[in-house]
């Protein structure tokens, strides 16, 4: 078994009216040596929507909060570096 595993899991379909919804998740598993510690990060990836007439589409589940947080932190770090560079010159 690998120490770091990234998998995509597909759940049971849910029938809602004319739509069949199939949930998908992305799982990151990290097992530390000796199998005495494990870290699991399970997050939604997408939902596959199937209509009664056979059409299939995939709707991605985006984590807007995480995108904003990382952008802000990256911006802060970049801003701090720019301030340092400007003061040097």
């Amino acid at each position: 078994m690998d120490a770091i595993q990234s998998e995509i899991h597909t759940g049971d379909p849910v029938q809602v009216g004319d739509y069949e919804i199939i949930p998908q998740t992305r799982v990151l598993k990290i097992q530390f040596p000796g199998n005495h510690a494990v870290l699991i990060w399970n997050r939604p990836k997408a939902v596959i929507v199937k209509t009664s007439d056979g059409q299939e589409s995939t709707l991605a589940v985006r984590d807007i909060t995480r995108v904003i947080i990382w952008s802000m932190l990256a911006g802060g770090l970049l801003g701090a570096m720019l301030i340092r560079l400007m003061h040097r010159n």
Binding site: D63, T65, I68, L73, A80, R84
Partner: peptide, 27 residues
Amino acid sequence: GVRVEPVVDITKIALAGLTALGFMVGM
């Protein structure tokens, strides 16, 4: 139809914003 609406956590975003601002002010 089917749509996916994101959940935006204002508290976490505000904390991240303050941390970013802290970096710049500290520098």
